[in-house]
Computed example of a mutant assay.
Amino acid sequence: MIKLTARQEQILNLIRDAIINTGFPPTRAEIARELGFRSVNAAEEHLQALARKGAIEISPGTSRGIRLIKSATELANERDSRQLVLPHPALMQLSLPLIGRVAAGSPILALEHVEATYQVDPSLFSAKPDYLLKVRGMSMRDAGIIDGDLLAVKKSDNARNGQIVVARLGDDVTVKRYHKSDDLIELLPENADFKPIRIDPERDDFSLEGLAVGLLRSWN
């Protein structure tokens, strides 16, 4: 059994709650803000300690690259099973289409939108994605999502408040944080330079395309 300090337990619960509620682990800045740390370095030190104890994995090359680890008993059972039948590494990868610019009015997964196909590790994501979407613009910068990132998206036509979604509004496809109250839907940016988009679902041409479940970033 992993022995954690009270503060490490607190951070682990914060990570778990963030993944359940939004589909994403928190950023270092969000952890620091939530727990009252003076700098993100303190959050990073706690995350590294959790990684050393085997409670989480930190994935290099991915934004918000924190993954929860199963219990020691579960891991041991999986290890024993793998010793009996070891799948080929290629079979453990997801094959995901990369969607570039989406033409107005056409399905997001139309063949003409597919720029490439990526083989990726499914453990990087909070849920199994259906495709990768190339992010354009900086409206979600403060959520750790920037221009050129590859957003992993699970197809869905509904969302909970606070989740990051891919939405279609008229001829545009956008990535924003979702919030619904009464008869109003708001698509909220994570950058003070951008304004919220307010939608009347009865009048506006609006639909949800999917939920963000992870992010890949190229450091080249």
Rank of each mutant, 00 (worst) to 15 (best):
M138E: 05
V153N: 03
A152I: 00
M92Q: 14
V114R: 14
R160A: 15
V153W: 00
S59W: 03
R136K: 11
T62A: 15
D157N: 13
T117I: 12
V153Q: 01
A167H: 03
Y118Q: 07
H88D: 14
S139H: 01
D171Q: 11
I58Q: 06
D149P: 03
M138A: 10
P60G: 10
I164K: 06
P107W: 08
P97K: 04
G170R: 01
I164Y: 10
A159H: 02
R67D: 00
L96A: 08
A103G: 11
D147T: 04
V153G: 06
I69H: 03
I69N: 07
L94K: 03
A90V: 07
V135E: 01
V102A: 06
H113K: 08
I66L: 12
D157V: 05
S71M: 06
K176M: 08
A110W: 06
I69M: 10
T62L: 14
K70D: 12
L132N: 01
S63D: 05
G61W: 05
E74N: 14
I146P: 00
L94S: 04
R141V: 02
L169K: 07
R177I: 08
A152D: 00
A90G: 08
E115M: 15
T73I: 13
K53Y: 02
K176C: 09
M92F: 08
G137N: 01
S123G: 10
I99P: 00
